[in-house]
C-alpha cells in the first residue's frame, strides 16, 4: 500500500499503522489475540468492542465500514460466529497479499482459541473439584452481570459502526425486537435487509 494511502487512512481514523515487516506483522496479530483469549467471557461476543478498537482505531487493519461488513459476514456464515477473528487477521494481512492474509487469518484464529482451549481442558479435567468451589460460584455469579453490561456496550458499538441511514437504524431496531420475540432464523433478516440495500432504501 503506498504511503499516501496509509497517511489518508490514518488521518481519517486516527489510528497509527506500525511499520512492520510481514513476519513482524503476523506476530503482532497473533500476540494481540493470544492476550485477549482469556477475556472472552459469555461466549466470546464480549470481545467485539475490543476487536473494533484494535483493528480500526489502533492498528489500522480495517476501516470502520469494513469492520461492520466483517461482523455481518461472520454472523451470516455457518459455524461459530467467533470465527470473526479469522477475518480480522485476514484484514490485517491483506496489504501484504492474499497468501499472507490467509496465514494471518489462521494465525489469528489459532491465537484467540489456544489459551481458552488449554484452560478449558484443565477445567474439564478438574471439574469435580471446581464444581462446588466458592471461587466457581463467585466467578459465575459475579462475572455474569459484567458480561451483561459488556454485551449492551457491544450492541451499541456495532450499531454505531454500522453507521447506516435512518431507515437502516429502524431495520436494526426491528431486527433486535424480532430476534427476541420470534424464532425466525437471522439469515432471513440479513437477506431481506440486503435486498433493501440493493434498492437503496438502506445506505451508509
Amino acid at each position: 500500500m503506498p504511503a499516501v494511502l496509509i497517511a489518508v487512512a490514518s488521518a481519517a481514523t486516527s489510528c497509527t499503522p506500525m511499520r512492520l515487516n510481514d513476519l513482524g506483522h503476523l506476530l503482532q496479530v497473533m500476540g494481540t489475540f493470544l492476550g485477549l483469549s482469556l477475556f472472552s467471557l459469555g461466549g466470546g461476543n464480549t470481545l467485539l468492542t475490543e476487536y473494533h478498537h484494535l483493528s480500526v482505531e489502533q492498528y489500522c487493519w480495517l476501516r470502520p465500514s469494513q469492520f461492520a461488513d466483517i461482523y455481518a459476514l461472520a454472523e451470516a456464515a455457518p459455524g461459530p460466529s467467533s470465527m470473526i477473528v479469522g477475518l480480522l487477521g485476514m484484514g490485517a494481512g491483506w496489504p501484504e497479499g492474499p497468501g499472507w492474509a490467509l496465514l494471518s487469518a489462521y494465525g489469528a484464529e489459532i491465537a484467540i482459541l489456544l489459551p481458552s482451549t488449554l484452560l478449558m481442558v484443565v477445567a474439564c479435567l478438574s471439574w469435580n473439584r471446581l464444581r462446588d468451589s466458592p471461587w466457581r460460584v463467585a466467578f459465575e455469579r459475579g462475572l455474569g452481570p459484567i458480561t451483561l453490561g459488556i454485551l449492551f456496550a457491544v450492541g451499541v458499538k456495532i450499531l454505531k459502526t454500522a453507521d447506516t441511514n435512518a431507515a437502516g437504524v429502524v431495520v436494526s431496531l426491528l431486527v433486535c425486537v424480532l430476534m427476541l420475540r420470534t424464532r425466525i432464523s437471522p439469515l432471513w433478516f440479513m437477506a431481506v435487509a440486503g435486498g433493501l440495500g440493493v434498492f437503496g432504501l438502506i445506505n451508509r
Binding site: 455481518a72 454472523e75 451470516a76 454500522a162 431495520v171 436494526s172 440479513m190 435487509a193 437503496g200 438502506i202
Partner: peptide
C-alpha cells in the same frame, strides 16, 4: 449496497445479545 443492508440487520442481532440474557 447489499452489505449496507446486511450490516443493518447484523447490528440488530448484536443489539439483541444483551436483552437475551
Amino acid at each position: 449496497r447489499v452489505l449496507a443492508g446486511v450490516v443493518a440487520a447484523a447490528a440488530g442481532m448484536a443489539l439483541s445479545m444483551g436483552f437475551k440474557i
